[in-house]
Write a protein that binds this DNA or RNA. Structure first.
Lengths: 148, 148
DNA sequence: CCAAACTGGTTGCATTTGTAACCATCGAAA
DNA sequence: TTTCGATGGTTACAAATGCAACCAGTTTGG
């Protein structure tokens, strides 16, 4: 355990990123092949699919994506006619986003695939391991919230 | 728990990526501000710093980075004169990479900062939570290895 | 009422990334 | 040997991303 060496294999930011990137990349094949969506587009679709209607700012906060990613994802989904914008009554800077029939259909088609992917992954873990990852992730998220 | 809705807040690929991205982005400020390194460059630096000498393929396997990322990171570190390439004796396609004095100095300077960052984060977790995240990540990595 | 500071969202431009095609070398099989 | 498929690594080009500057609308304080 030399003090001036960093053991990458036990360095959490490294392990965490490599894992998340691999998982996300694997999962992205599903929506990429299926509909040619990028990750920001998929996130926007699934955010709206779940919550019904959101503003771009809400999407950004929920997903931790940069505002330009959201802006571009929304623009692309709109171009496909998968979502519509409705101006807010009281604040004309704000737009309420919602999926169209077509967007909702795409979302509904993706949901079972997403669930199946997660299930397949989690099926390889023991109940304790599943509990561990969930707990660990939640704890780290909270820790990050406290930082800075 | 509607069957045709995906709850993003409990969807592991989503949670995991958001977390890892936030952590990584926070940590990247350190090497970006300090030396203007990109993530692939930092990973290459720290891989070589830890192991002494590696080939591009070994770097790629260890970090799960795309080979072009490795190639470009190596080229940039070479341009800075932070690493040198030595052709393999028996296979002339292969190059053994190693840090120069200057590269090693930069690495040594970064190590304590990396450790401090991780410590600060982990300090906000309980011992059980720390154990949980480590165990969960390891289990998922293994599960991924089995998949596909 | 007005200016200044702020917020929601978009855009231009530079950097980073992914993909595929590529070059050189190697190993195996004919 | 010669040939052909794999492998280590690079590069050209396209797509995705980040940053900063921006526009429009809103709030706040004087």
């Amino acid at each position: 355990m030399e003090p001036d060496i960093l053991e990458l294999e036990s360095f959490l930011p490294y392990r965490l990123y490599r894992l998340a990137d691999t998982v996300s990349r694997e999962f992205s094949k599903i929506y990429k092949e299926r509909h040619g969506l990028t990750r920001p587009e998929w996130r926007t679709l699934s955010g709206l699919g779940e919550r019904g209607t959101m503003t771009a700012t809400e999407l950004r906060e929920q997903s931790a994506m940069h505002k330009t990613k959201v802006s571009r994802a929304v623009a692309e989904l709109e171009r496909r006619r998968w979502l519509t914008r409705t101006p807010d009554e009281s604040d004309r800077r704000v737009e309420h986003l919602a999926l169209t029939k077509a967007g909702l259909a795409a979302y509904r088609e993706m949901v079972p695939l997403a669930k199946a992917f997660e299930s397949e992954l989690l099926a390889r873990l023991s109940a304790e391991e599943r509990a561990a990852i969930v707990r660990g992730v939640a704890a780290l998220e909270e820790a990050l919230g406290e930082m800075s």
